[in-house]
Amino acid sequence: MSEIVSHQPRGVSLQRINAMVLRYWYLLISSWPRLLELIYWPALQIITWGFLQNYISQASGFFARAGGTLIGAVILWDILFRGQLGFSISFLEEMWARNLGNLMMSPLKPIEFLLSLMIMSLIRLAIGVIPMTLLALFFFGFNFYAIGLPLIAFFCNLIFTSWSVGVFASGLVLRNGLGAESIVWTLMFAVMPLACIYYPVEVLPVWLQYVAWTLPPTYVFEGMRSLLIDHVFRADLMAWALVINAILFAASFAVFLALLQSAKRNGSLLAGGE
């Protein structure tokens, strides 16, 4: 090995993960419109749904009692959605830049690549969601952080789900090229009706409730309603969500590796286009 290169560990390298996070950070700060966009949509969401919450609270005794359920749901949904987008957009940047071949030929391992995308999704999420929670506080008097410790359980479960979906969607784009890019933008919306973000699970037909309970976000949103309406923290729901998340996460990683192998068989890693 060349003398100018340090010894590299056989396992996961923090230095390589840092290098990739730095790459996405450079990218993020190189464009103020992109930075603004991270804040813009969540801000619009919270303002729109906040006013809706105010309106129906005046009209409905139930919503007056269940103060903040809509706003809370919007913020938690944004954690789920933006978490996945934050992951996937960083991945798409490599496809758009035709840089994937350079990365795949470097000592960067797939797990390091995915870990760096996860860190970046947290950074992008923080940039988008923290201003959103402050808007909720100042405009609508909803203190998201007053949820307290349960918030950590909600957040962890949602972010794990968002990463699982992000890893899976990225694998599909890796295998099929940018022609599959729309999957990245739309896949999470397939989860939306079944995750029961704005309504309880009982609203669904019985057979669909079984499907809904296979999704970790369903547990989180039910848990949030239980906390905000009944003031009860359902640890059992969070534990189930965590178990399903662990299975989903492992499965999405396995699928990503399988799709990477398939891309190598298919020769699509160097193609990268549609």
Binding site: V5, S6, H7, N18, R23, N99
Partner: peptide
């Protein structure tokens, strides 16, 4: 068939790849 990221500066690109290759 591959490019260096366009929006990054030359120094930033080389810094990232240097770190990926653990260049001293």
């Amino acid at each position: 068939y591959v490019d260096m990221p366009m929006r990054l500066t030359v120094r930033q690109n080389l810094t990232i790849f240097g770190r990926l290759y653990a260049v001293k």
